[in-house]
Every structure is written in C-alpha cells, then in structure tokens.
Amino acid sequence: MKARIWLTGFEPFGEHVENPSKILVERILGTRQTNEIKEIPPYGLESESVELSYSGCILTVDEAGSGESLNHLSDVDAVIHVGLNEKAQKIRLEMCAINELNFRIADNSGRETKEGFIDENGLPLLHTTAHRPSISHAFSNNEFVEISEDCGRFVCNETYYRTLNFIEKSGLQSRGRALPALFVHIPPFESIPEDQQLELFSELCARIVQKPIVQVVGGVLINSSQQILACRRASDQVMSGHWEFPGGKVEANETPIDALKRELNEELGLVVEVGNMIETVVHDYGSMIVKISFFTCQIDGQKLTPIVHDECRWVTASESNSLNWLPADIEFVQRLAQKGFEEL
C-alpha cells in the first residue's frame, strides 16, 4: 500500500530557541519510508506494509502559518500537523479543534488575541476526520501516548481548526472518505527521546492512511413460515431507519460464533444455536471497510425482545425486497430472495 502525507511542524515561538516539532518533521519531510505494522483486534488493516511519502513545510507561528496548508491538500491521503506542548509528558493525539482564539502569549507576529473566533461563521467544535475508534484503540495501551480533547487556544488549535474547517466546507476527500486530518502535540525530547517519538509517529502515519477493517457477524433467523427476521435501526443509531440483520462487531479474542450469540442476546434477548455460515460480504463504507459473515440461527420459538432496534419484522422473500436495507446487506438479501428462503 502506498500513501502520501502532508506533514507540518512549527518554528520556535515564545521563549523557545528550538521547537521539537520542527526538528521531528524536518527529519521526515521529503522522504519515502516503508512502515511495517500489525493489526490490533478488533480492527484489521488494509495492509501491514505501508510505503509513505512525505511532503509539507514548517509553519510560521501566526495567522498566515495557520492557513498555509490549505492550498496543498488536494493530492494527499492524510494531513498531520505536529506542534509542541511544553507541559506535556506524553504524545497527545488531539481529537478536536475549538473555534476559539485565546492566547496567553503573543504569536510570532505579535498578535495576542483574547476571546476571539477563528471563523465567525464556523461551527464551535470540529472533530478529527481520522477514524477515531481505530486510532484510539491502536495506542490505548501505549504508555507514551494519550488521547486529548483539548488542543488549547493558541496557533496549534487555530491551524487544526482551519484545516478541518476547510476539509468540511470543500468536501475534500481521499478514497471516498473525508481527508483524514489529525493534530499531534509532542512533549519536549527530555520527556520522550526524539528517536522514540519518531518511531511512534511513523506508526501513527501508517495507520491513519488506512481504512480500518471491521469484522461483523449477522444472524439470519428464519421461522416455520419461511420468513426471515429484519430489524430496523432506531433513531439514535447511525443510519437510522435502515433495516439489517441482527448482529454486530466481533470483539478482540472473540470467535464469530461467540460474537453472534452475544449480540443476539444483547439485541433481542435470545439464546440461539448458530448454524452454518452462509456467506461473507465485504463492503466499503468510506471511513471503514466492513467484513460481514452471515450465519443461519435457530431460536426455537423464543419471544423476541427488541432492545436496540425500534422494529423487528418477519418478512417473506418478496417483502424483503421492499425494505430499505443497509448498503452492505442489499445484494446479500437479493441473493437470498432469489434462491428462496426455504433453501436456508
């Protein structure tokens, strides 16, 4: 797998003679590196070998620098801004940017904004466009990395907000998803040595460009009338109103069959016998790739108790074609209907 990253650091600011973000980024800019990484269940990888090429620049610590990257993002697969947090002891992966300016010191142009906005018409908060669950999970057990919800109110936050705001307003995408963008605050090298930070940063880059692969299981329940069970996603769920097969994500250290038994108990209050696997479907949702294994299930006349869905319905083959199924399920349902549910 090959990918291109736009990477930035910052010039020294305030009383700092050097800026570790500038030193770290300058070691990588203009290089092409192959990174070998391992998947960390429950998320899979598109590739364990990633060839990354880095372009970018060192930003001035002022308003001009905060928007410098915006004209360079159309031909890259991810953007990562790196800045110094002088008080940090760990590498901080910033999950959001705030539409606020509130400087405790002047930037390098002499600007010292208090209680201002980055964009008067912008949203108050913007989240990273990287796939947060898989990135957070990959580094959750790393003692040198922490997840942060506060990027500050200085030029680091301003830079991050301008980038995320530009991606949202321009609809900028990479491989069918919003261009992944993340801000990384690094500590002084006295806290974590430069080479160690570089190693962790390289792993982050290799992960952020990938679409995580999520292993999912679905239960095809059929009754004595040759109807299958369809469940509609509730209003508080992603893609609400769509119909699906009951089931869910396979957790780490869990077999697909054990996962399906757990999910059907959690979602419908059922204790099931899982039968044969019917088919495995792979669907690209843009932000992630879902790999769904469908199994037949027997429930022996148990009463359904829907817990997460707002409706469950037994449907015939002809009725199934009229439902608004999740995109990943559509063609699978059509194939089942063509064969006839009695063949399950």
Rank of each mutant, 00 (worst) to 15 (best):
I228A: 12
G171W: 03
I98K: 13
N223F: 04
I213N: 07
I135L: 15
I98Q: 11
V217T: 01
V145L: 04
L221Q: 04
F139Q: 00
K211R: 02
V209A: 00
G110I: 07
T159F: 02
I208D: 00
S170H: 09
V214P: 07
F103V: 10
D150L: 04
N102K: 09
I228E: 08
Q226C: 12
A97T: 00
L204K: 04
P124L: 11
D107F: 01
F201P: 09
G176S: 09
T163V: 15
A138V: 08
G110S: 06
R104N: 13
I213W: 02
M95E: 12
S134G: 14
R177V: 09
L172W: 05
H131K: 13
G122W: 06
K114D: 08
K211I: 04
S225H: 07
T159D: 07
L126Q: 01
T129P: 01
P187H: 11
G171N: 07
I208R: 00
P180F: 01
Q210I: 04
N165V: 00
F117I: 10
V145N: 00
N223Q: 03
S202A: 12
P180D: 02
F183P: 01
L125M: 15
F103C: 10
E100R: 14
E194C: 03
A178V: 11
P212Q: 11
K90E: 11
I213V: 13
M95F: 10
I186K: 01
Q196H: 12
I192D: 05
N99D: 07
E190S: 15
F201W: 07
N142P: 11
A181Y: 08
E194A: 01
E143D: 14
Q227E: 13
E203T: 14
A106E: 07
P180N: 01
K211F: 07
L93D: 02
R92I: 09
A130W: 06
V220N: 02
E203P: 09
I208Y: 00
N223H: 05
R111Q: 13
N121L: 15
C205W: 03
E199I: 12
C96P: 05
I192Y: 05
E158L: 02
P188I: 08
N141A: 10
T163K: 05
I222S: 08
K114A: 13
R92W: 07
A97K: 04
N142G: 11
R111E: 13
V209R: 00
L101Q: 14
Q215W: 00
V217M: 00
I98C: 11
I91S: 07
E143H: 13
V145T: 01
V155Y: 05
L179T: 04
S109P: 10
V145I: 06
L172G: 00
K114P: 10
I91N: 07
I222H: 06
I167W: 05
